[in-house]
Design a binder for these strands. Structure first.
Lengths: 221, 221, 221, 221
DNA sequence: TCGTAAGCGAGACGGTACGTCGAGTCTTGCT
DNA sequence: AGCAAGACTCGACGTACCGTCTCGCTTACGA
């Protein structure tokens, strides 16, 4: 879904992670002058894995850095050396979760339905549904997190924008439809479900949502 | 907006609070046998006000009961005597925020636009925009909060359902439109904006949203 | 012995403790306007006992506040509420150890020997021998500790000064003997043993020490 | 002074250091089979100097190996390659401090006074006064340190023993004076001053101390 | 002259303790 | 009984060192 989609090449998170690393230690990979023992990629993975595990098991607000360290078999300092607090850690762990695959069938309705269905199945299989609201809820009071989250949300939005652009080129939708708004409309009911209703996000919801969004609520004629 | 509206009589929260109070001290209102000094209504208000202030200032996850007590000029025990933990306290404080006024103009489009516009103006004037995401983010991993939040969300949803029911009776919309889904569709883009995009919720957004939701994204013809 | 003796009424430590308490929370016992739950005397005792136990078991430099808290069945905060660091805590715990009983037999030699013997027996039975050097070693780099330790040392010195003053009044020693120096002379070999030689402080050492100090090293004639 | 004097040839520390080196890498000097880059003597010196500096500045218990490495411009591993822990390092650094020069004037009083005066002047000029108590305080609970410190203390004691032996040969003191005890008596008041009173060790103190120790506290007659 | 073996500065590693803070509970004296 | 105040236990926070372990490099020796 828009706000959680991931670019196919997975580089967005790479950037995010780099931005993070730079803030903490002044850039690693790039500068060849780096000295000292290099950071363990193994530990990095173990931390991210443990974070995701615990996120699913106990939720964001009960997740403790101490717990992550213990589960990852890692010292706390090793975590704080990489992430300044649990928020960016969780953002990065979250970023590792799979995005969705953009579908290009040549027909708007099919593109939307397939893309959303695939993603929703995925969404239920992982912890995306539990993690994202936790992060989003902090945005209003945490500008730093907001900045971290922005590229993620933008990245997940883009595929939808592209789907609508193709539909416009094919003449399926009018030239003056606001594509951003259209994307929000299709994705909106899912957002409502996720944040306000706390219900399950079944792939079965996708059909009616897309149909209603495309044809409108009012009676035709 | 739907999920944040409040029943006109404001009794829902009253019930919630009673349920709460009963769990804490075994029901007081009815029983005439209660003795000792009565609870201070003044303190109650001060606590709720302080909670709301802090919720806006620092967000849910940084809100501390200690801070609330201090700002309210109240002992911590006085808070815990009324609410078993900070969660129900925050929910109740949140419930005090204004809902929206249902409009009945006899025309679906007008009803939706006016209702949403009024609410959005309100939303920006108060702290709803900052507080709600904080709470919503906790839902996924906090069943207790989820349960507390449910009646609030349902209450705020109902006005929209009524608007659509009236429209159906008037024949403005087809008999087989899923009213719940329709409500989610209208409200969806606002939810997306609030949680994923972090943008401002201007009342000017309402017109295009309602128009697109009512007439659909696809080209007519 | 001088530097570890304790006034019979045990009030010196009381003062020390008060000075401590005042620095931390602005004086407790005295002001009747104090509010809130009073500090638990039980916890205070448990902490001091645990400290002394651990001091004996693991020594000063391996003593951890965490360990004290655990052994005392107390939260760390309860310790830090009373003592700003482990040093004053150890000083106070140390102060609880028994001092020595001043003897007044009417004869200098007997007074000195009895006083020292009693104390040395005591010294070996408790952990004085292990604790005091630890504290003394920190003095040079810790002015605060130095201040804390000063009244203790002075208190333990006084009994010796009194013994010599009585001897001077009786004419046992010359008017112009420097009493402070005499006290240091008698006590000196014990200090050397304790700090430099690391040997055992047996009460049997007392006789020869006092004899030599009183009559001098040089041949008489 | 006795317990801090140093053998004239300064070899004691050499032995200690060798013993150390052997424990660490299995003996180097002799064996011709050693290969690879030799250890840097420069680094060795820098480490010892930094250790001594820090010992004076912050005391033993606040001294960190990390700090030593940084100040010496050396990696931590280079320190641990030579000393198995910070204790022997500190002991060796301490051993570098100057001892005192034994005086042989042919008269006990003069020998004692001159030896002590010289040393005390020295003591005040260097950091002995700050370092030694730090180490001594650790002895009681640290057998390893105690063992390391023993030869140092013995070495510094010997000159005094020799002074008294010469005096006995000359008939200045009785045959049955316990020389060890006599040494402790002379040195005792300085020890007391250093550890218990925290006062300054002025060379002016030496005269009265030696006089009183030699002639005794009691009135002659 | 070149490889190999050890040393080097730098700094990350898993741990442990630090001193602080907040949650939710309990205990004063007073209303 | 209620109240404000504030101490209570517990447990996580983020930091600092411990002693160990790589890194990429430098320095001597022996083949």
């Amino acid at each position: 879904m828009i706000w959680e989609a991931w670019p196919a090449d997975g580089t967005l998170m790479g950037e995010l992670q780099m931005a993070q690393a730079e803030r903490v230690k002044g850039g690693r990979g790039g500068a060849p002058g780096s000295t000292g023992r290099p950071r363990s990629e193994e530990a990095h993975q173990a931390i991210l894995d443990a974070t995701l595990d615990l996120l699913v098991e106990v939720g964001f607000s009960s997740l403790t850095v101490e717990g992550v360290a213990q589960r990852a078999g890692v010292g706390k300092a090793t975590i704080y050396r990489r992430w300044p607090s649990k928020l960016p850690l969780v953002v990065e762990a979250f970023g590792r979760l799979p995005g969705f695959e953009e579908v290009d069938s040549g027909r708007l309705e099919t593109d939307l339905k397939e893309t959303l269905k695939t993603y929703l199945a995925n969404f239920n299989a992982t912890s995306l549904g539990a993690v994202f609201p936790s992060l989003a809820g902090e945005r209003a009071h945490n500008p730093e997190l907001s900045k971290l989250l922005e590229p993620v949300a933008r990245g997940r939005r883009e595929p939808f924008v592209r789907i609508f652009e193709r539909a416009r080129e094919r003449g399926e939708i009018s030239e003056d439809v606001d594509i951003d708004l259209a994307a929000d409309l299709v994705v909106g009911p899912i957002s409502v479900m996720l944040f306000f209703r706390g219900g399950t996000l079944s792939p079965k919801m996708v059909g009616p949502i897309v149909d209603l969004a495309l044809s409108g609520i009012l009676k035709k004629g």
